[in-house]
Design a protein around this nucleic acid. Structure first.
Length: 148
DNA sequence: CGAATTTGACCAGCGC
DNA sequence: GCGCTGGTCAAATTCG
C-alpha cells in the first residue's frame, strides 16, 4: 500500500523473473490512467519493486508520505543483513532511481517528486536519524523474530 | 450484499 | 503463419 487505492487486475509470471508480477490500476478514479506493476527484485527477492506508469489525474493527499514508508518497508525487508543506517540510505536511494529510470520517458512529475523526496530525505538529518532509528528498531525486531 | 482479488482465457506484438 | 511472451479482461470466488 502506498497511499493510493489500487485494484489488482492481473498477474503473470514473466520469463526474466521467476516470481509472478502483479498488475494494478488506480481504483480511486475510474478515469485515472495510472498503472503499476509489482514484482520481486531480481537481486534481492525480499525486495518488492513497483513500477509506476502514467500520472494520477486526481488528488494524492498522503501519497508522498506513504511512498516514503513504502520505501522504508523496502529498506526494512531488503537490508536485514546490514548494520549501518547509512548503508540503508544508500540502498534505498538507488532503488528509487531504478524505479524512476523506467518511467523517465513517461512521467517527469513523479520523477521530480521522488527526486525531491530523496533529496530532502537525505538532506534532513533529523528525518534521516529518525528513519534510521525506526528502521534499526524494526531490523532488530525482525532479526530477533527470525532468529528465535 | 457490494467491493476486491484470483485466475484462466484472451489478445496483440514480435521473432523465427 | 506459428508460437512465445507480456498485458488485459472478466467470471468466479473471497472478504468485509
Amino acid at each position: 500500500m502506498d497511499g493510493y487505492q489500487w485494484r489488482k487486475y492481473g498477474q503473470k509470471v514473466t520469463r526474466d523473473n521467476p516470481s509472478p508480477r502483479a498488475y494494478f490500476r488506480c481504483s480511486k478514479a475510474p478515469n485515472c490512467p495510472v498503472k503499476k506493476k509489482v514484482q520481486k527484485s531480481l537481486e534481492d527477492p525480499t525486495i518488492l519493486v513497483a513500477t509506476y506508469e502514467g500520472e494520477h489525474n486526481h488528488g494524492h493527499e498522503k501519497a508522498e508520505i506513504s511512498m516514503i514508508s513504502s520505501q522504508c518497508e523496502e529498506a526494512r525487508l531488503g537490508s536485514v543483513h546490514v548494520s549501518s543506517p547509512k548503508q540503508i540510505m544508500e540502498r534505498t536511494s538507488p532503488s528509487m532511481n531504478l524505479n524512476l529510470v523506467d518511467n523517465v520517458q513517461k512521467s517527469s512529475i513523479q520523477q521530480f517528486l521522488v527526486q525531491q523526496m530523496a533529496t530532502s530525505l537525505t538532506n534532513d538529518p533529523n528525518f534521516t536519524t529518525a528513519l534510521a532509528n525506526a528502521i534499526s528498531g524494526r531490523i532488530l525486531d525482525n532479526a530477533n523474530k527470525a532468529r528465535f
